[in-house]
Design a protein around this nucleic acid. Structure first.
Length: 360
DNA sequence: AATACGTGGTG
DNA sequence: TCACCAAGTAT
């Protein structure tokens, strides 16, 4: 690192232009800061804000969260995505209460050993809660540092990680990590954006190697593109005759882990409406309506095949359906305080409104 | 080391 | 429409 240190200009800029009004910047409560850091992983501020307020109101401290039902924790997380964060959050609160006296550990190594807390998150919390001088390295910091130092390597490689961490630590000022960490994130989230950065307004422009060399648009280097896998799933809407529908809890890992969804099968397991469903439909003289058939992108199911099966329940004989522990009949209008996968939530909403799922 | 994990917004 | 992006961690 040969250029000027960035902290002085960055901190001066932050005092005038930082987003000082963000709710997690109005507190030094380790619990609130921890919650914010977890929610902000891979998630933008605008998305987090309403979730943060609701969550903090319902679970204001480690003790309350540790004592909570996981269903309600996931309920408050519904729609935020990356649900392992919510499961880890709950587990982490329990560990903090039972093994750390209800106080967030002040040692970064101990903090990092907690579920859901990696190096950057641990450092962010300790810097803001306890005024410790730890560097952070998230997407914003990587982008700012990659540009300022014209780092053209692969940020995802182990060597790239190591180099970026060393840059991050070298730039983090002594006795001011708290403000500095916020400042560099704000810069990355506003002026030093991925596309079309506002270099004309940037306080780091005079020493920015990417800017001086005209490399801003090329840095940081993008990771290799991967083929986007297409997944299809069959979701079954199964009613019980009282306008309640069957939900099934997903296993603890994998997509929507711990959440409730409409009963589903991946396409590779099932080509079309299940034989069982077809059989029951035929027995009862009902038509099995395949309501929609559209492709899905990546691991986000934007479209579904829907088996619309308005049949009476008792006859379902699959293994999953017998396991009542992970099954629930719910009213689409009031599915209860359980974590719902977003697409399932949307379909329930449609059912509650019109009685028919809207196809998309 | 490479991959899985969500969702809403954007150009 | 659709690829890509946004305050990473766990395995």
């Amino acid at each position: 690192m040969s250029a000027e240190p960035i902290a002085p200009a960055l901190l001066a800029w932050y005092r005038e232009n930082g987003r000082l009004d963000l709710p997690w910047r109005q507190t030094r409560d380790p619990y609130a800061l921890w919650l914010a850091e977890i929610m902000l992983q891979q998630t933008q501020v605008k998305t987090v804000l309403p979730y943060y307020q609701r969550f903090l109101q319902r679970f204001p401290d480690f003790e309350r969260l540790a004592a909570a039902d996981i269903d309600e924790v996931l309920h408050l997380w519904t729609g935020l995505g990356y649900y392992a964060r919510a499961r880890n959050l709950h587990a982490c609160a329990k560990v903090i209460v039972t093994e750390h006296g209800g106080r967030f550990p002040a040692d970064p190594a101990v903090a990092m050993s907690l579920p859901g807390i990696g190096r950057s998150t641990a450092h962010a919390i300790l810097a803001s809660a306890y005024d410790q001088d730890w560097a952070i390295l998230d997407g914003n910091v990587k982008r700012v540092l990659s540009r300022y130092h014209a780092f053209a390597g692969d940020p995802a490689s182990s060597e790239g990680q190591r180099l970026l961490w060393s840059l991050a630590e070298a730039e983090t000022p002594v006795n001011a990590a708290h403000d500095y960490n916020q400042a560099i994130q704000d810069l990355g989230a506003t002026l030093c954006s991925r596309s079309k950065p506002s270099c004309a307004l940037c306080p780091l422009q005079p020493g920015c190697q990417a800017y001086l060399q005209g490399l801003t648009a090329q840095l940081p280097r993008r990771p290799e593109r991967r083929q986007m896998p297409v997944r299809l799933a069959w979701l079954s809407i199964i009613e019980d005759g009282q306008h309640r529908v069957l939900l099934q809890r997903q296993g603890p890992a994998g997509l929507w882990g711990g959440l409730w969804t409409l009963p589903q099968r991946a396409r590779d397991e099932l080509e079309g409406p299940s034989e069982a469903a077809q059989g029951f439909a035929a027995d009862l003289g009902l038509h099995l309506q395949v309501a929609g058939a559209l492709p899905a992108a990546r691991h986000t199911f934007t479209h579904f095949h829907l088996d619309y099966i308005p049949l009476l329940m008792r006859s379902m004989g699959t293994k999953g359906i017998r396991d009542a522990k992970d099954l629930a009949w719910v009213s689409p209008a009031d599915p209860g305080r359980r974590g719902l996968a977003r697409p399932t939530e949307r379909i329930l909403h449609q059912l509650a409104g019109t009685g028919q799922p809207k196809l998309w």
